[in-house]
Amino acid sequence: MQESNPYQAPVAELQADAGQVLAERGTRLGAVVVDGLIGLAVMTPVMWLGGYWSAVMAAAQRGEQVGFGLQLLWMGIGLLVFAAIHAWPLHVGGQTWGKRWLGIRIVTLDGRPVTVARALFARYLPLQAVGGIPCLGALAVLGSVCMIFRNDRRCGHDFVAGTRVVRVR
């Protein structure tokens, strides 16, 4: 006979509307890591060629930090590069490359694939904009991400955009 453990997490797969199964937290984390590595591979040479690293080194040698305007500029460039990298898979199936490779997708609350505009402007842009606020931004992003531990597995950016992440059949 198996004893009941009141502290054990539920083992049933959570169902979203229309029979969709919510993506596992680990799979979502894996997709973010893949997307981050792709972004790193693309942005590092762009930042090198664009002079950002030189500006950071020069400021560090003077004992200063780079200006907020320069940081804001490169945050905008990063968002444009993210959009350029992920626009096609977001358009085709509501997925970033990481989500596509790991078999999950972003859908609206009624189960339809998310549009590129909704994903970029309601899901990713607000999180990046808030994340750019010194100190408080990092805490806000952490709070948004930690919301994945709710039963519905939706992060703060999912609430802002009216989305959730499900497995692809």
Rank of each mutant, 00 (worst) to 15 (best):
V130I: 13
A117F: 05
L29C: 14
W74E: 02
L80Y: 03
R164A: 05
P45E: 15
V81P: 01
V66S: 01
S54C: 03
L14C: 01
V66C: 03
W101C: 01
G132P: 07
T44E: 15
S144Q: 05
A9G: 08
N5W: 09
L120R: 05
A58Y: 01
G36D: 04
C135S: 12
G162T: 08
Y52C: 03
W97Q: 02
G67I: 05
L80E: 05
L22Q: 02
Q128D: 06
G76L: 09
L142N: 03
W97T: 06
T115L: 06
V165I: 14
Q20T: 02
D158F: 03
Q95W: 02
Q71M: 13
R154F: 10
A16F: 10
G76H: 10
F149L: 10
L37F: 13
F121G: 09
I38R: 04
P89Y: 10
C135I: 12
V32C: 04
L125W: 15
L136C: 15
I148S: 07
A117S: 12
Q15E: 05
S4H: 12
F149M: 06
G131R: 09
G63Q: 10
R62A: 10
L72S: 11
V56T: 12
A117K: 15
V141I: 14
A161R: 08
W48I: 10
L37P: 08
T115F: 03
E3M: 09
L22G: 02
L40F: 14
P89M: 12
D158N: 08
L142G: 15
L127P: 02
V165A: 04
D110I: 12
W88K: 13
R169M: 06
H91E: 01
L72V: 12
G94R: 00
V107F: 02
R154N: 09
G132E: 15
C135Q: 12
L102G: 01
V107H: 00
G103S: 08
L136Y: 08
A31Q: 08
K99G: 02
V116R: 02
G69R: 06
A18C: 10
Q61Y: 05
R150G: 10
A60S: 12
L40T: 09
R164F: 00
V34W: 00
A119N: 09
C146P: 00
N151Y: 15
N151F: 03
R123A: 09
T108M: 07
A138H: 11
T115H: 06
I77E: 04
A18V: 13
T115S: 15
A58C: 05
V141E: 06
G39R: 03
R154D: 03
I133T: 08
E64P: 03
H157S: 10
L40K: 00
G50P: 04
R123I: 05
V32H: 13
Q20E: 07
